[in-house]
Design a protein around this nucleic acid. Structure first.
Length: 157
DNA sequence: GCCAACGTTGGC
DNA sequence: GCCAACGTTGGC
């Protein structure tokens, strides 16, 4: 079971929702909603499983960095914001019978003592294959190899 | 604030 | 089904 645990990275703009917000949420848990990209949706819907480990990355902020580690506590289920007309993420084409967008629930597990910055990661040869660091890749939910995951957690400890 | 890169939409 | 136009992401 443990060996099949997958590793992920999710991006968030901390001005909207930060790792600290997750850390301070009831039970340190929150839904991870609002993803509106099909490839990311597929990971949320089909691939992320309870117990999977997740790096939480802060984008569009100084410094851009991995802020902490979370775990999946509920696997993919329909994102209700797609049906909410008043929500910024409302999708008029989505139908409750056949939801388009999915979310998971995440629980904060570990706050890195030292955020691991994008600038730092770019200079680490071992991380050069990370999807996050590839030119033009802007997936907000992406898989991470166990090696890359371990390197980052160790660097931030 | 800029803009490269990418995803989506819609006319044809 | 092509592809130009448009919108978004997200680093710089």
């Amino acid at each position: 079971m443990f060996e099949s645990m997958a590793h992920w990275l999710v991006k968030t703009e901390p001005t909207v929702f930060s790792f600290d917000d997750l850390w301070n949420a009831p039970k340190r848990t929150s839904t991870w909603d609002g993803v509106r990209n099909f490839q990311a949706r597929n990971f949320l819907r089909d691939a992320m499983k309870v117990g999977d480990a997740v790096l939480v990355y802060h984008s569009s902020v100084e410094p851009m960095a991995i802020a902490g580690v979370a775990e999946v506590v509920r696997a993919g289920y329909p994102d209700p914001t797609q049906f909410d007309r008043k929500n910024h993420h409302y999708d008029p084409k989505a139908k409750p019978e056949t939801p388009t967008w999915f979310q998971v629930d995440l629980r904060a597990v570990k706050k890195l003592k030292r955020p691991v910055t994008l600038a730092e990661m770019k200079n680490v040869p071992e991380l050069s294959g990370m999807m996050l660091l590839q030119r033009g890749v802007r997936l907000s939910v992406q898989p991470v190899s166990p090696e890359h995951f371990r390197w980052i957690v160790a660097a931030g400890f």
